[in-house]
Amino acid sequence: MADITPPDDEGLSAPHVLEYAYKRSLGPVLGRFFTGLRDGKIEGIRTRSGRVLVPPSEYDPESGESTDEDFVEVGPGGTVKSWAWVGQPRKNHPLDHPFAFALIELDGADTALMHVVDTGSEAAMSTGMRVSPRWAAEPVGCIQDIAAFVPEDSA
């Protein structure tokens, strides 16, 4: 095969946006979870082995069994299990100033919810810290109805 030396320029480029503009039904479990968020409460689901999953799912990831729609209200407070400090937010991040992504185990849950924590500074973050939700001004039934978690004593 001939060895073709590319020209020494930037080549042609053009913007291209890929999107899937359709809506889906959430089903019985996530539908109830997001309706709950709209109403200011967080619900997990109890597996047949007794563990409470938050966010809830229609099946137990450990056994594959159905979760039987056994809902349990959890939180609203919780404990940070791990966190990552984002000093320079990207355009699709929910906050436009530095924040943390965090895994938050809500009181009464056995798994952690991934969400964001708004402390203003990395120095205010720590594993094991207590947080609680700051709710969106106009909840609509989506994960961003929790605008962010904040340190419990400041909520």
Binding site: P55, K81, S82, R90, P94, A102, M114, I143
Partner: peptide, 21 residues
């Protein structure tokens, strides 16, 4: 697509959560 993607967790941030664990 319901509980995570709307919050925009990028690959580096998710890896950072694991690294801190």
């Amino acid at each position: 697509p319901y509980t995570m993607a709307p919050l925009g967790p990028d690959a580096i941030s998710m890896a950072a959560l694991q690294a801190r664990s």
